[in-house]
Design a binder for these strands. Sequence first.
RNA 1: GCCGGGGUGGCGGAACUGGUAGACGCGCCGGAUUCAAAAUCCGGUUUCUUCGGAAGUGCGGGUUCGAUUCCCGCCCUCGGUACCA
Length: 819
Amino acid sequence: MSSEYNPQTLENAIQKTWDENNTFVVTEDPNKEKFYCLSMFAYPSGNLHMGHVRNYTIGDVISRYQRMLGKNVMQPMGYDAFGLPAENAAIKNKTAPAAWTYSNMDYMTNQFKQLGLAYDWSRKLATCDPKYYKWEQYIFTKLLEKDLVYRKDATVNWDPVDQTVLANEQVIDGRGWRSGALVEKKTIPQWSMKITAYAEELLSEIDSLDGWPESVKTMQRNWIGKSKGIELDFEVENYNEKLSVYTTRPDTLYGVSYLAVAPEHPLASKAVNQNPNLQDFLNDCKKEQSNEAAMATMEKKGMFSGFHAVHPFTGKKVPIWIANFVLFSYGTGAVMAVPAHDERDFEFAKKYNLDIQQVIESHDGTEIDLTQQAYTEKGKLINSGEFDGMNFSQSFKAIKYKLEQEGIGRQQINYRLRDWGVSRQRYWGCPIPIIYCDDCGTVPVPEKDLPVVLPEEVTFDSDGGSPIKKMSEFYNVLCPTCGKKAKRETDTFDTFMDSSWYFARFANPNNDEQVLDETANYWLPVDQYVGGIEHAILHLLYARFYHKLLRDLGYVTSDEPFTNLLTQGMVLKDGAKMSKNKGNTVDPRALIDEYGADTVRLFSMFAAPPEHSLEWSDEGVDGSFRYLKRIWTNIENFTQNNKIIAKIVQDDLTADQKAMRLKTHETIKKVSDDFGVRKIFNTAIAACMELTNALVKFNDDSNNGKSIIHEGWEAIVKMLSPIVPHITQELWHKLGNEGLIVDVKWPTFNEKALVKDELQIMVQVNGKLRAKINVSANADKEIVEKTALGDENVQKFTTGKQIRKVIVVPGRLVNIVVV
RNA sequence: GCCGGGGUGGCGGAACUGGUAGACGCGCCGGAUUCAAAAUCCGGUUUCUUCGGAAGUGCGGGUUCGAUUCCCGCCCUCGGUACCA
């Protein structure tokens, strides 16, 4: 009697076995090679969605594969538990964010277990747990000592109706998402991290990240945006300070026709005093969005400030404008404008009728039409006095030298990267461990008083304002230094602070004595990090930065946190991102109930390569389920009828047996490459399916035949076990084996079984396929060429024509070029 | 706007280093089994075709004996754009 494939019963039983045996709990083992596999931890939104399923299955497959290679694998999971959605849910449901978050985490942990993910749950952590964020606060105070954090004014989105600060996400078309009021910029003091102090290292070490996708590395390089330029000072008439500008194109200095400063620049404030008409313009600028996309696409607007600068070399007077597109936070907050050779300056000059003076010649010396667009390429200088005729690098040096001689300019390396503002005026986050005392100033909370615990029993107002800002019992404290009455900081940390170091804390999540102990250097760096491509810049850059901070604080010895990075694409339905609004979500729970976790895992891995987006298909899930039933039934039938398996002797095999065995070992080779090198699983599954088809078709009752079939099934079961761990565990037993398949060695291919006697060669005439010929595997070029030319169908295309050339690609193809 | 991806049959995708375009799966069509259905199994399935072939990998060019793959210029689409995570 054969048994039915019943995934629910099977999966429950096997998950119970793993649980009872602590199969995935790991400790440091100096005798084994370690492998730390980490999938980006989850935001506890309430339910696992398909994006999670995919992300975590990928990590799980890699973990289980590495374990079969004999490594000591750690795969932990936790929760990125602070954040905005909990506050939104709190306002909506009138519950505290903490209660909502904790219940979501419980529910999701169960879902994780149902998926059969091989996590070491003894290491579970949550960022909203004081046991975790105590150390985040501690690190912050250490960084304050090292002068790596500081307080400065920074801009936020201010909703004037709700009287709250809004996240960029909460600003829709320039209006607050609840109130609908026009959002204003507001400047308040905030804490910043000096990531720019690490800009050079963050940039240069990208080169050492061989296990990262090129696209992510390029994005990070561009984000850091290192540039070499000149900072130079202009004298300003009737203004007692010089105006410094930063430019990467000093070669165009003679083409400067105006300067432009940001609306926040001190010169702009000075200008208002003399010309009140400017006030309206500056007020308008305040209402504009400050995010990068808006800045880049908005209409370029400006007003003449009333001031003139003096060109350092020509002595010419150039007007200074106030312009909405100049960033106060980049460079000096002021630019020199050369409309002839910069698109944006050109657009602005056209609009306001400002001079356009050509100072760069075209490559071939032909006339450039500067009435339609700027000429932005580099070239020889003209109209530039003593610098005429120089190229870019010559003029850069010469102009730099002259500016230095006159003491009005210097070479400057600039980064697009800005320091990281970490203050948030929100409730559900890690409290910033600072106390403000009238006498002692800014005082960090001493270690003995950490953690500063976030009160969890709070009620939320509909305006979305942070409850702790109204809780005197929270913010009224005594100064730790002098003991007088003082005020606690009520802002919380950006949640990126929480997620920038969790990967390290997983080494010792339950250590209440230290941030990190010696186990951190056993496990770190993470060998494989898996997560969404949407984190390519911010999270991954902050985490790299934090790892260097931890290194410089003496906790870790490595320079980079993630050796290999896999960025998975999104899960789509009907071509769009799944979302509740669109009503195109697929609930993993319902699918697991219907098909079992293995089917869901198999489909997630089969439908697309990890890095691509994945189009969800209900029919496709059916197909995956069908495949599992197919191997179940076939192995069941095979093992029922064939008990004795003989040892295979390659030389005794018939041609058909050799061919079958070749397929098995070719598949092992291909799948090993897919798992270990390419990290692509859809093709590995396809190869296993091909092997399955071949085994089903292969009818051979001889002892050798049975052994070859057994070998094939066993290979499939092992190779699929990281992807579908439950069913393969059971099939492993059916094939006559004991124990847990998680600890079985990954299969290896047999070189002898891979030897082919005959090869199939494609024959093309003028690049078009005309024949397929079989030649002996050791046939030389001449024989291959002769066989190709002698082929009947080939001759139909060659007779009566002159053969000009014959290209033979060994083992692959012959191309005959005729005229 | 800028930075980084992606675009191949009816659909998801394969082709790994420039060498058989469409592996594998879904769907569909036909057959077997069944009283019937479900399930299962077997076969077919890019398009056009005068059945010789011809065309074909977002669009337009180029390099090459040969291009999905390399180069140039576009179009569409997705991710990020510093307070969503």
